[in-house]
């Protein structure tokens, strides 16, 4: 559902991503591993629109097969046969607010919750791009569903998000991203600084989410926890992929 071709990303004069190419399958949970400075967070940031690539393309498969009438070629007078309507959309360099509309949601490493707003406001604002089309009632229902996924947030709807513990803030950040109903969920080190019990809970939620069809790209330094839930994984070093395979293969690889 995601294709990255020859991606180059710079931070000033420093090249953070070097000619990276990658494919992520629909419904896959892909773990990206690597040391600090390998370019993992930059890659996620670029996919979410926070960094503009200097070179390369990011393509995402369109949500559903568009009906023939919606195919741009059809509008020009061409009636396509099945499969001729373009299925991939080039989203290279789109701004974050556009990326979320394309179904890509990022849970950043520092969580970036709205600290002075309530838990419920944080969740409801997660659905900002579809608030107008769905309406308040549907969004509040979704917020309740998210709180079913993370029961620890229940009963804390009115609490200021900034007063929550680190674990709860991480759950809120993931919950807020889920409110956007993403097709591709990007998580940047969700286990960092959290107790093992909380990490286990978050990983089990990711495993459940994968079963609902959400494609997940998980950047983690906690290799063991990530490989346990991932289908496939890759290792990054200095902005390039140095190793990739199924999580079982990487688990048994002594280099990982």
């Amino acid at each position: 559902m995601l294709k990255i071709k020859g991606l180059d990303v710079y931070h000033g004069y420093v090249q953070a991503i070097r000619g990276l190419s990658l494919r992520v399958k629909e419904g896959e949970l892909l773990a990206i591993l690597g040391a600090n400075g390998a370019g993992k967070s930059t890659l996620l940031g670029t996919l979410a629109g926070l960094h503009k690539p200097a070179k390369g393309n990011i393509l995402i498969r369109k949500g559903d097969t568009p009906p023939a009438e919606e195919c741009p070629q059809y509008k020009k007078g061409f009636k396509p046969h099945a499969g001729e309507c373009p299925q991939w959309e080039d989203i290279t360099g789109n701004a974050p607010e556009k990326m979320v509309r394309r179904g890509i949601s990022l849970v950043p490493e520092r969580r970036e919750i709205f600290g002075s707003l309530s838990v419920l406001d944080n969740l409801v604002l997660g659905a900002y791009h579809r608030y107008r089309s769905c309406g308040k009632g549907a969004i509040l229902n979704d917020a309740r569903e998210v709180m079913e996924i993370f029961p620890a947030l229940k009963g804390r709807e009115k609490e200021m998000a900034g007063t929550l513990s680190g674990g709860l803030q991480q759950m809120l950040a993931i919950g807020r991203a889920l409110m956007a109903r993403p097709r591709l969920l990007l998580l940047d080190e969700p286990s960092v600084g959290l107790a093992p019990l909380v990490v286990r809970e978050i990983m089990s939620v990711l495993a459940r989410l994968k079963q609902t069809g959400v494609t997940i790209v998980l950047v983690e330094q906690n290799t063991r926890a990530a490989l346990k839930v991932a289908d496939g994984a890759l290792v990054m070093e200095r902005g390039s992929i140095t190793l990739s395979g199924s999580s079982a293969e990487l688990m048994s690889n002594s280099k990982v």
Partner: peptide
């Protein structure tokens, strides 16, 4: 109004949820 407040509180997070 809450969306505007969100943009004031955290610009990056606001962009990530689709607020311009």
């Amino acid at each position: 109004g809450k969306a505007v407040k969100a943009a004031v509180v955290n610009r990056t997070a606001a962009r990530l949820v689709g607020i311009n």
